[in-house]
């Protein structure tokens, strides 16, 4: 039988590569003894998840994931780790005393979840996303989801104010 190149399961291969990134990165996050390495594994994992979004034809979300998670949250975490180098406790064990207890609990959790999602017959609709999802998202945020959109903006201001308030250097008035 001649080799048929159109049979190469490109999408599946990409899926498995991304899974390797996402899950491998996640395992690295929770198992690395070095906090800085954990954070870099987190980036890897987030990158894999961004790849998932591309496969799921949610390109906008993939870019947002890169921008917000990798570009902001991960960098912020790295920044905090670097800022407080002693936070890392380099070389010492990063797990608390209960870690051996949480391992079986989480295993059971995983087994239950996998069992549930694999037994359900999902009502998969064959439909394709309509039109330009970016455009649709824009309409949603200025239409049905206008209120959540505005609330998010308030929430971000609150987080900004609170973040600055909590993390800023000591102010003279406080010493009094």
């Amino acid at each position: 039988m001649p080799f048929d190149p159109s049979q190469i399961p490109i999408v599946q291969i990409v899926f498995f590569v991304m899974t390797a990134c996402a899950i491998g990165g996640a395992i690295g996050v929770v198992s690395s003894p070095n906090l800085f390495h954990s954070a870099l594994y987190l980036v890897l994992s987030l990158f894999g998840v961004a790849g998932y979004y591309v496969l799921l034809s949610a390109g906008f979300l993939a870019v947002v994931q890169l921008m917000v998670y990798v570009g902001a949250i991960a960098i912020l975490i790295l920044f905090a780790i670097m800022f407080a180098r002693r936070l890392m406790g380099q070389g010492e064990n990063q797990n608390n005393q209960q870690w051996w207890l949480s391992l079986p609990i989480v295993m059971i959790l995983f087994a239950v979840l996998v069992g549930v999602v694999n037994t359900v017959s999902w009502p998969v609709s064959g439909a394709e996303p309509t039109g330009d999802t970016v455009m649709e998202l824009g309409h949603a945020f200025l239409g049905s989801y206008l209120i959540p959109f505005e609330v998010v903006s308030i929430l971000l201001s609150v987080a900004l104010i609170g973040g600055i308030f909590l993390a800023r250097e000591k102010v003279e008035a406080e010493e009094a």
Binding site: V43, G59, F60, V63, V64, G71, A72
Partner: peptide, 21 residues
């Protein structure tokens, strides 16, 4: 990409990451 402009910013984050590393 229909999100080309955001892509620039997103990739810029990787450069920041490299410098941090």
């Amino acid at each position: 990409l229909n999100v080309g402009l955001l892509y620039i910013v997103a990739i810029g984050g990787l450069g920041t990451l490299a410098i941090l590393m």
